[in-house]
Design a binder for these strands. Structure first.
Lengths: 201, 201
DNA sequence: CGGACCATGTAAGCGGTTACATGATTCT
DNA sequence: AGAATCATGTAACCGCTTACATGGTCCG
């Protein structure tokens, strides 16, 4: 049910079409939340049916049209309610750590490749999030600046701070995952005796 | 598709029933992977149909019976193949960080409660994993000791080391999440001016 | 005899993935 | 004219959750 709230979060900035939201997901929430078109369009229809959004047909070119959604009062209430209610933490399901626990079954090279992929994955995320923080700090995030434009000045500090806080936390987590995988690479070498003889010194 | 491989991982130790596996999930893989009975039993049937397992009916009491599964060669091959192939990293979907990014929408107290729940959740996990590491170190993990009993002595170090490595990594991650949430609590206080006046000293 | 535990599922539904399908617009 | 992009979905399937259902065993 978080897709619904992620969509609400984005639509609190300004009315958007399904296509806009799809792009916004990639540009602004990517790596915190992902959703394909095939999920976004039907969900928007459902949200409209539930009264959280109102969709209006907007002409686009001579024959084309698009549907722009804006949040209703009920939608804002639903979003605030979600923000105020505690999250239910679901059980861990972590394939990378599951595999790590049984790494003795893998070929050493496959085990190394696994951990290198882990590093590559989180390094990529890290770079993206560093860029997000830079955008927050330099005022070059289109979505954030629009959001600030519609919010009272008294809230600007909070809005900016919470976004920054989120991304900085994700960067730290990515760095932790990278360090963990790097320790794993060392461990694989140790267990497979790549070092000729441990120096007794 | 990881449930299947988690089940294979556990069944490489010794033959077990669905009920045993359900318990083993709670005791040994809990918080790395969770699966309810309603998922385990049908999956075991499917795995048997796919030739990865063989199930044998074992009498249990005067009229009762249970089905004990053991891994076939094909099952071992499938498990090794999974261990040797790289994981595909799926997109992030992280409700806690999604909410954190929009914390200005929550009441300060709700925001605090949210972060405290985050701390409680990861603190609980941390305690469980610390206990797992202790069991590994003291040789009091039933599953691990059984596993070592069936493995050549030359592999004991690796088996133990990878399990330890996994849990230590998870502990570090939990601690990171706790630290992040604690920074968040400080941030909420700062933004809501709980401190009467910042000491200029 | 009752309560804790052992044992094995079915069924409905949900959120998400993957693949497919269609057509208009804008720019070069 | 063709390519990139804008725009909106449908359909099949999959893994997982939640709720429900049933019956046997073991021990005090």
């Amino acid at each position: 049910m978080s897709l619904r709230h992620a969509l609400l979060a984005l639509l609190t900035v300004e009315p958007m079409t399904g296509y806009d939201l799809s792009k916004a997901f990639q540009a602004s929430v990517s790596h915190v939340w992902h959703a394909p078109d095939s999920q976004i369009y039907p969900e928007l229809r459902r949200m409209e049916a539930d009264g959280l959004l109102v969709g209006t047909e907007v002409p686009w070119g001579p024959r084309g049209k698009k549907r722009e959604y804006h949040v209703t009062e009920a939608g804002l209430d639903a979003f605030r309610a979600w923000m105020n209610e505690p999250l239910s933490y679901t059980r861990e399901r972590d394939p990378a750590h599951l595999k790590a626990a049984y790494l003795e079954w893998a070929e050493p090279d496959a085990a190394r490749a696994q951990l290198r992929a882990h590093i590559a994955n989180f390094d990529e995320q890290r770079v993206e999030w560093l860029e997000k923080v830079r955008e927050i700090d330099t005022g070059t995030s289109a979505m954030l600046e629009k959001r600030l434009g519609h919010a009272p000045a008294s809230e600007h500090a909070s809005i900016r701070a919470y976004k920054r806080y989120t991304y900085v936390g994700l960067i730290a987590r990515a760095e932790h995952e990278i360090e963990w995988a790097e320790r794993g690479l060392v461990l694989i070498d140790e267990l497979n005796g790549t070092d000729a003889a441990p120096p007794a010194d």
